[in-house]
Each structure stands twice: as C-alpha cells, then as structure tokens.
C-alpha cells in the first residue's frame, strides 16, 4: 500500500513538474499529456508499440534490479546490451537455419554475448579484486567503441551511407502478429523466469540474502564468491538478451546508436522499482509508455520528444525522494508512538 502510494506520488510530482516545464516554454500541458496517453495506450497499435518499447527497458531493468538486490554493482547494462546485440547480429549474418532453430539460437547467442561481457568484469573482480562498479562502467565505453568499429569496418553494409550491418537472415526475424511483436513474449517469459528463480529456488534465495547481508550469507554457508560470478553472468545475459531482441524484433540489423539509452533507462527502472521484480515490469511499461507517447506529443503539440528523458529523470528523483521522506515520517511516527506508550 505504501509502495503504491509512493509510486503514485512520485509519478504525480514528476508529471506536474513536466507540465510546469511545458507551460513555461509555451506549450499546452493538458493537450500534450492527452497526446501522450493517446499514443501510448489508447488503441491496440499504441499499446503494442508501448509493449515493444518496454522489452529492452524491462530486461535491462531486471538485470540491474537482480544485480543490485544480490550485491554486485553491475552498471554495465549498456555495454552488455551492445555486446548481446552484436553477438545476435553476427549469428544472424553468418547462419541461416529454419526459424524454429534460428530464433532460439540467436537469443542464446545474445545472452552469451552479454554474459561474456559481464563475465569479464566478474573475472577481473575475482582474480584481481578490481571493483566491478568502475570496471563495468569502463567496459560500457569500450563496448560502445568496439561495436561502432565492428559495424564500420568488418561487418559494414557497403551499400549503406552510415555505419550499419546488412540485415540478418530472415529466419532470425522475430515473428509479428499484427501490431504485436513476439519480442514481448520473450520479455514476459524472462520476467516470469527471473521472478521464479529469485523467489522459488534455493540459489535465488541465497542471492537475495547475500545482497542484504553478505557476511550472514557467508556464515550461513552460501558460496558467496561463486554466487557473485553467477549473478554477473545471469544479469549480463539478461542485458544481452535485451540487445538481441532489439535487433531481431526491430531493424533486423545493427545500426549506429542502437539501444543508446536502453541500458541506462533500465538502471533507472530498477532504481524506481527499488529492485523489486514485479515493480521493474510495471515501471518498465510506464517508462515505455512515456517514450512512445512522447513521439505523439511531438506530433500533436510540438513538444520535443526528448522531454521523455527529462520526465524520466524527474520521476526517478521524485520517487526516490518521496520514498525516503515517507520512511522518515513513518519512522518518526513510530518513535512518537513508542514514547507515548512508555509514558502511559
């Protein structure tokens, strides 16, 4: 209940501030928010767009939330997403199998690509005790430049004017049903599997306990070091999956700037959801709705669609602030109640 209230409060504050910003710059906030709703959830096409946009956000959000809740500070979602997308693209360029084999294979390749990149950070941490926090951040930049190089030189589509790869084999394209892309199914499956793993298996329990109190987990007999590596690999695979699905569901090739903000958006989603997995799913959808609705806003009232990024940033700050403020208020109330009880 408190969580719901807190979320709604944060969203309300963020939307109010966003409206104020639009008002100051001479746009009509009500008409703009109307357009945002219309283009994000009003009809089947809009809703389908929102769900498709949500795929990378929810998956990188799951990655970040699972990592933060288990202890490792994996901030490498942007880089792991890119490496996953690159792995899927390479698979799609050089292989051509029947779709029933091809799609799962590319999905696995994408997960392997992301896991590899996260695994590199885990390795540096395990062998040299290098903090994964900074290592994953630096590897993001390295992955960024590496993928640009890959699509500019070895994998370049020579007929294109800007750096991009040729399209992947058609058997690797994710099937679409009307407006709905089957990437959404993969996302839902990943949400369900991650939740089941975290809440219903022993390893998932060990990870959560390790995140809350590493010493307790170690004394209780959890293999803390081994779990660290597995957390990094799995969360890397989730971010890599996001990249693979973006390639296979959308442009069917690796373009420059692919998934540019998705990784960081996922980190934001995890932060506002306070690392809860169902929360990641809901906030991921909400962020995606803002992003698809913002394009409609630009069309109708002329507000630059980049306002979506401002709204997201304000939303994160507002929710974090209201969460802490609420906690302080409840703590203070509890103290006062206890004082009253003692006096009585």
């Amino acid at each position: 209940m408190a969580k719901l209230f807190n979320g709604l409060l944060g969203i309300g504050v963020a939307l109010a501030l966003g409206g104020l910003l639009m008002l100051v710059q001479g746009y009509n906030p009500l008409a703009s928010y109307g357009a945002l709703l219309q283009f994000s959830v009003a009809d089947s096409y809009a809703l389908a767009t929102t769900f498709t946009n949500a795929v990378p956000l929810v998956l990188t959000g799951l990655s970040a939330a699972l990592a933060f809740a288990s202890g490792p500070v994996n901030l490498g979602q942007p880089g792991q997403l890119l490496m996953g997308a690159l792995a899927a693209t390479v698979g799609g360029l050089f292989l051509d199998l029947p779709p029933l084999l091809m799609v799962p294979l590319l999905v696995l390749l994408a997960m392997a690509g992301g896991a590899l990149w996260a695994g590199l950070a885990a390795l540096l941490r395990q062998v040299f005790q290098m903090s994964e926090f900074i290592v994953t951040l630096m590897l993001n930049m390295v992955a960024d430049f590496f993928t640009i190089w890959a699509i500019t030189y070895p994998l370049q589509d020579s007929t294109a004017y800007s750096p991009m790869t040729p399209p992947i084999a058609q058997s690797g394209w994710l099937p679409e049903w009307g407006d709905w892309n089957s990437a959404v199914v993969w996302m839902l499956a990943a949400v369900a599997a991650t939740w089941f793993f975290s809440r219903r298996t022993r390893a998932g329990y060990e990870w959560r306990i390790g995140g809350q109190n590493s010493l307790f987990a170690r004394l209780g007999g959890c293999p803390v070091d081994r779990n660290f590596v597995w957390v990094m690999l799995l969360t890397g695979a989730l971010a890599g999956l996001a990249g693979g699905l973006v390639v296979m569901g959308g442009p069917h090739r690796f373009l420059r700037g692919l998934g540019a903000n998705d990784g960081w958006d996922g980190v934001m989603v995890a932060i506002v959801a306070n690392n809860s997995l169902p929360g990641v799913f809901l906030y991921g959808l909400f962020f995606a709705a803002i992003q698809s609705g913002a394009l409609g806003m630009e069309l109708i009232t002329g507000v630059p669609s980049e306002i979506a990024m401002v709204l997201q940033g304000v939303l994160v700050l507002a929710i974090v602030a209201s969460r802490e403020a609420l906690q302080q208020v409840t703590a203070r109330l509890a103290v006062r109640r206890r004082a009253l009880e003692r006096r009585a």
């Binding site: 934001m268 979506a308 990024m309 940033g313 994160v316």
Partner: peptide
C-alpha cells in the same frame, strides 16, 4: 545515478 541520468536527459 539519478542526477547523472537527469542531466543527460
């Protein structure tokens, strides 16, 4: 993290 992303946006 939130401030960095806010600044970017």
């Amino acid at each position: 993290i939130a401030l960095n992303l806010f600044a970017l946006g």
